[in-house]
């Protein structure tokens, strides 16, 4: 806004000074004045109108290839037409930046004076210099970069409270589920009541080598739960003292009857089948022990 005002004042001043044999009608500079880097091409367009007999000769134009303070004029395009009693010239000056360096600095498109000929008096048009910020591709150090930082608006954050709550609930459910599965199925003592006597029996049964050992493992579990040696005639007392096993009363009774037959008579059993049956019973009683059955 401020620049536009200055340019307008310059145009008005030049018009007054030259009594209007030639006037700079318009001047258009590049849109961005910051962030210009080496190799960038900048264009400024200007329109001049002159009264007859004044004309703009080709020699009045700046020389193509001239470099001033790291800015080179790489192209000149001139379009001249009759306009009323005079002429109208549309001139496009194309510059390219060849400035190197590691620090930002202020550069300019140079001031240009165009001399029109043909009249009795000299008529000059002055195109003012246009300043811009050169930005190096590589900064010298962090301090330089920091001093050249431009404020940015932070992106708006997405609302995350609902998603976080859902995630927390899902994780809690998952963890509880895993703990539950672990509690029900785990064989070792990781949580309270997990190292119960029947859980141990279930584990030890895998190592049983004889019929007697297998039966003894389960009997020992019963003995430990009961607090004393448990025999078949005392099963009613046992179940009354430990009602969590009541639902398995028939299986327990059957185990004791089978155990008596195998241990105290000459009856023999298929060991793998016996161990499998005892593991099944131990597992049921383990679940009862953990109160999940």
């Amino acid at each position: 806004m401020k620049k536009a005002l200055i340019v307008s004042l310059c145009l008005w001043a030049s018009t007054l000074a030259n009594a209007a044999p030639a006037t700079l009608v318009s001047l258009q500079n590049p849109r961005a004045s910051t962030g210009i880097e080496i190799g960038d091409v900048l264009q400024r367009s200007l329109v001049i109108e002159s009264e007859t007999p004044y004309e703009l000769p080709g020699s009045a134009l700046p020389i193509k290839g001239a470099r001033i303070d790291g800015v080179e004029l790489v192209n000149i395009a001139v379009k001249g037409d009759k306009h009323g009693k005079g002429h109208r010239y549309e001139i496009t000056l194309t510059y390219q930046v060849f400035q190197g360096g590691a620090k930002p600095l202020v550069m300019r498109l140079p001031q240009t004076t165009l001399a029109l000929t043909g009249g009795s008096e000299a008529a000059n048009i002055t195109v003012p210099a246009w300043h811009f910020w050169y930005s190096p591709l590589v900064v010298g150090d962090i301090h330089t970069a920091r001093s050249n930082l431009q404020p940015q608006i932070k992106p708006a954050l997405l609302p995350e409270a609902t998603s976080s709550a859902r995630l927390s609930v899902a994780v809690a459910v998952l963890v509880l589920g895993l703990i539950g599965l672990l509690y029900i199925n785990a064989e070792r003592r990781w949580l309270p009541w997990m190292g119960g006597h029947f859980a141990q029996a279930y584990r030890q049964l895998r190592k049983a080598k004889t019929q007697g050992q297998a039966l003894n493992i389960v009997h020992q579990a019963f003995n430990r739960v009961y607090g004393q040696t448990l025999f078949r005639p005392q099963l009613a007392e046992f179940l009354a003292a430990h009602p969590q096993y009541q639902s398995h009363a028939a299986a327990i009774e059957a185990f004791f009857a089978r155990s008596e037959s195998l241990l105290f008579t000459r009856e023999q059993s298929d060991l793998p089948a016996l161990i499998k049956d005892l593991q099944q019973l131990s597992r049921q009683l383990r679940d009862a022990e953990r109160r999940v059955a």
Binding site: T210, G212, Q213, L215, N216, I217, H219, Q220, N223, Q228, T229, L263
Partner: peptide, 9 residues
């Protein structure tokens, strides 16, 4: 004695 002693394996 009867409460404590178990049938050995």
């Amino acid at each position: 004695i009867l409460q404590t002693v178990a049938v050995p394996a």
